[in-house]
C-alpha cells in the first residue's frame, strides 16, 4: 500500500508506512504510533471499537496532511488510521513525517496527531468488564 492517507480495518504496520514515505533530501523521519492501552481511567480495557464517518474522515485526514505540508518545512507526510475492533496493543494510528531536519519533522508530527484527535470524525468505544462506553476526549 502506497497511500499517504488511509482509513481502513486492515492491520497497521509502522514500517510499511515509513518505507513508502518520500525521503528525498530527508535527514529525519519522525513517526507517531498510537496503540490500544490496556487501562483507561482506572478500568481494564478489553478491546476498542473505532467508528468513522468514512467519507468525511478521509477528506479531513487529507486536509490535515495538506495543511501540514504548507505550514512546516517537510518532505512528506502519511496518516493511516484504523477502524473496527482492536485488541489491546494493536496499532490504531500511524503518522510518519520526513523532513530535511528534525525540528520540522517533530513539530509537524505533533501537530498532525493533535489536530487529528481534535477534529477527525472518528469515535472509539471502550469495552471493559463493567460495560462499554463511547470515549469523550474533550479537555
Amino acid at each position: 500500500m502506497n497511500a499517504r492517507i488511509a482509513l481502513s480495518s486492515g492491520i497497521l504496520d509502522e514500517q510499511s508506512v515509513v518505507s513508502n514515505l518520500s525521503r528525498e533530501g530527508a535527514g529525519a523521519v519522525v513517526t507517531f504510533v498510537g496503540r490500544v492501552r490496556g487501562e483507561s481511567r482506572g478500568r481494564t480495557v478489553e478491546k476498542l471499537e473505532y467508528e468513522a464517518y468514512q467519507e468525511m474522515a478521509e477528506l479531513v485526514l487529507a486536509r490535515i496532511a495538506r495543511e501540514i505540508r504548507e505550514q512546516f518545512d517537510i518532505v512528506d507526510i502519511a496518516i493511516h488510521h484504523r477502524v473496527g475492533t482492536l485488541a489491546v496493543g494493536e496499532i490504531s494510528v500511524v503518522i510518519a513525517v520526513s523532513a530535511a531536519h528534525r525540528p520540522a519533522a517533530f513539530d509537524a508530527c505533533r501537530h498532525a496527531i493533535d489536530t487529528l484527535k481534535r477534529i477527525a470524525p472518528i469515535w472509539k468505544k471502550e469495552y471493559a468488564a463493567d460495560g462499554a462506553t463511547w470515549v469523550d476526549d474533550r479537555p
Binding site: A57, K117, P121
Partner: peptide, 10 residues
C-alpha cells in the same frame, strides 16, 4: 447532514 458527537480518534 452529519451529526458528530465529541470525537475520539487517534
Amino acid at each position: 447532514v452529519a451529526v458528530l458527537p465529541p470525537v475520539a480518534g487517534g
